[in-house]
Amino acid sequence: MQIKHLRLLPVLLLSLTLWSCEGDDDDGGDNEEELITTVELTAIGGGATLTAKVEDLDGEGGKAPTGTPLNLKANTDYTMNVRFLDASKAPVEDITLEVKTEADEHLVCYTPSGAMTALDIQDKDSKGANLGLQTKFKTGATGAGTLLLSLKHKPTKTNANPCSTGETDVQVTFNVSVSN
């Protein structure tokens, strides 16, 4: 290397010195968390519209989620829709639309127990795989039971047991009673 070029070195280093430093760009606002606070079921059957919900308005931590039961009639056909809401904001944000838009990346799974009967998923994503926002089922004899509902993000829908894959965004249990 030629020595005379070394004269450029201080210029180079000086210009590097003037390289502006990075800084904290937090203005102190926008600390809002993304939440799903509410899962709401709407079941239509037997000439009536039923709703049930599980809600955790203070988000993760603090108080545990609370819920209202799903009171069904025995031996009745139902069509049920599920909605996911962020009720911690005003107005309430409906996250179901987002799930619909990204149907390929989502799956709603249902695990019934006790008097709750199996559900059939009605809606499909763009690839023809289950989505699960709408279901149909027929109740049987009277009794008590539960319905475990979970919303999966990026499940492997081709897996033999797709509900064991993906990341869980929502997992709630509804109490179910089936009566005459």
Binding site: C21, E22, G23, D24, D25, D26, E34, I36, D86, E93, I95, L97, E98, H153, K154, E167, D169
Partner: peptide, 28 residues
Amino acid sequence: FNRRQEYDSHRRFNPLPETLDEPSIEFE
């Protein structure tokens, strides 16, 4: 100066177009 940005597997629900690439949490 340390900026740590973590991107969860799930991006924000209902993102505004300009917030699509925003981290889920950021410490500065």
